[in-house]
Design a protein around this nucleic acid. Sequence first.
RNA 1: GUGAGAUUAGCUCAAUUGGUUAGAGCGCCAGAUUGUGGUUCUGGAGGUUGUGGGUUCGAUCCCCAUAUCUCACCCCA
Length: 457
Amino acid sequence: MIPSIPRGTRDFSPAEISCRNFIISTVADVFRLSGYQPIETPAMENTETLTGKYGEEGDRLIFRVLNSGDFLKDADREKLNAADAAALLPSISGKALRYDLTVPFARYVVMHRNDITFPFRRYQMQPVWRADRPQKGRYREFWQCDADIIGTSSLLSEAELIGMVDDVFSRLGMEVVIKINNRKILSGIAASLGVKEKSFTAFVTALDKIEKTGYENAVKEMIERNIFSRPVKENELTEFLREMPQRSPDKIRELSPEAAKGVEEIETIYSFFEGDKMKSSTVLRDYTLARGLDYYTGTIIEVKPAAHTSGSSICGGGRYDDLTGIFGVPGLPGVGISFGIDRIYDVMKEMNLFERKGLQVPVSRLMFAHFGEAERKYAFRLSSEIRGAGISAEVYPDICKIKKQMEYAGKKGIPFVAVIGEDEMKSGMITLREMSTGEQCKLPPGDLSVKLKGEKH
RNA sequence: GUGAGAUUAGCUCAAUUGGUUAGAGCGCCAGAUUGUGGUUCUGGAGGUUGUGGGUUCGAUCCCCAUAUCUCACCCCA
């Protein structure tokens, strides 16, 4: 039987891990530098914790975990016989894999609220799962790196997060475009166009397609979906939306008091950066930016590589007034950002950014090659001494031809090989070969660590 | 969940119109070289053509189903 892994999941080999760890540790460094503290939550949550938080589509994409043991024992017979999967689910599955890190965080905050000092800055870097059909930049298991600050409405937090985004991508060596908008502006626009209240989400998703499919298609979708409470002319609507990006903040303010509030918020965030230059990012106001989950209520942020602004986003976030309210603790506003490290990896790979970072796959600095049983034993003792000096070392495990041992070291990229033979043991002088040049020298075992430390890595 | 394309050796790809023993490069293994990797030379192994059915005298090739990958829709990191 040929083994395989579930679709949309991946194995990561040593070279990939090096690159991924570089991204993960870079993000963590930046998070810590602003006082964010790490937490972790379980891969599984109770189903009720997750369902209903991501919209109808989101619910469909949650991986359910079947109850252990005889899961049919407590199954709802009526629903089972009716083959009604959706209705049967609660009686056979009580757990689900987490879909993102924000909702589990809200649950965490509610459960630990008495131990937390607010405002609370936390970061979390863990895999999440979505039962989506895989495609470019989309996996069923992927990592999110989230930083959230909860317990404050201060717009300083947004500025802080944007600064962190800039810092991360500057360290990674990638130019990005950070787009910023505000849900209040979107609802202001919707109100001024006469969008029905219940159609707001439909309006927002259509609006979001402008960049991808153009104004005409977005408008067509809005009209087809019948989202307006009064007659709207197609060409007037197109014209209105087309002017959106160029529209000055003042023009947006005129739309409605709510939109004015949104504009105010964005301008406040900008004011924190006054005169400062971003290191690696261009921050843009985009009044048509609509991305973000349902729970966002204020600022929304989306980050794309400057080289692929039409591609998928590599980072996103926003402000929520009351995320913990759904778990019974109202009045805790917050704002967060999420880095999609799998997509960041893909972009960096494509742009050859890892090569410039000189990342190395961890490999022993020294290998002992040997000619027989006694030599191998001798090498084993030396190897443990050399490790004591902080130098990674391994002994070739089998007794075989020196050629084969050398071949192994060369292929593996081990930079130094110490050859232990009868001569070496007799004279007490080890033969050390530098693999890149082929140069060899003899030295006493005690000098090995000094010699290897002295050489640059 | 909907639609399109792909799948041949470990990898990248060939194979005429449905016709004899499915080939090449790279990689792998062994030897040339019994104390030395990368270069070179010589030899060798490796395939139920993704899987399961069907049509046919005969299928890598045509048909159906299924799995996986890629791309798009939906939605999203």
